[in-house]
Each structure stands twice: as structure tokens, then as C-alpha cells.
Amino acid sequence: MDKTEEAKLRAARQFIEAIPHSRALGMQLDGLADGVAEISMPYDLRLVGDPRTGVIHGGAVSALMDTCCGAAVMSHPDSVSGTATIDLRIDYMRAAVPGQRIRARAACYHVTRSVAFVRATAFDDDADRPVATATGAFTIERPREGAKP
């Protein structure tokens, strides 16, 4: 990774980790480049959805997926100044193992002038069996013509 890429990643990390809800969930940016983002979140007893099994609530996984997809859109090489979720579908493959970190990876697989189509996958320590997958459409806000980059 060269110096400018490293600086970009550091700035993005600060940006994402400054979002109040992302901070509340302990999200951490692990990678970001050209429309692909990796964000992870520690196991946390406050996020449990089933007290008998200790499994994290699907809603918390949704929050991770949404943040990761949004970050992927923001990192797209076309200059994107902002984004908002239009729709997001999450498929829950299996329960995340209690105690393990959840890692999400999102990629923009098609981008038009105004919409980004994104897919994401989440894993725990078992990298072969996804915990959940997501697919969504996101708005693309571009800087106004003539505005400073």
C-alpha cells in the first residue's frame, strides 16, 4: 500500500469509526479500496438476540452489512460525495457462533450515474460458511458541477 492509499484508508477509518451507531457497535474498518470495503464487529453481549443461545441478533448483522455496503459505495473510484440506502435484502444462512467476531465484505458490482448495486457477505471464524449475505441498491450523490473536489 502506498502513502496516499494509506492516508485515504486512515481518513476513511476515522470517518466510519466516528459514526455514532457504528462506534456503539464497535465497528472497525479493515480494508477499503475501489468499491470494496471490509468492516468487522466484535461479539458483544448487548447485541444478543436469543438469550438462551447467546447468538447475535440479526438486526445487528444488518447494521454491519448496511455500513459495509455504504462504505464500499463511498470508496468507488467515481467521485462519490455521499450515499443512502435505497433497499437492502439480507439472507441469514446460519447463526453466528457466539464469542466470535463478525466480518463483512461488500463490493459494488455495478455502478451507474445515480445508483450503485452492492453485494456483501458476512463470516465469523469459519471463512467457508457465510453467516449472511446481502444485496442492495444505494444512491450515488456526486459533488455539484464546479464545486471544489
Partner: peptide, 12 residues
């Protein structure tokens, strides 16, 4: 509001 919060609120 965080989009994830909205999703979680609906799911809950």
C-alpha cells in the same frame, strides 16, 4: 438515523 438502526427496528 443509521440505516442499520432502521433495518434492526423493523426486524425486531
Amino acid at each position: 438515523l443509521h440505516g442499520g438502526v432502521t433495518a434492526a427496528f423493523l426486524e425486531v
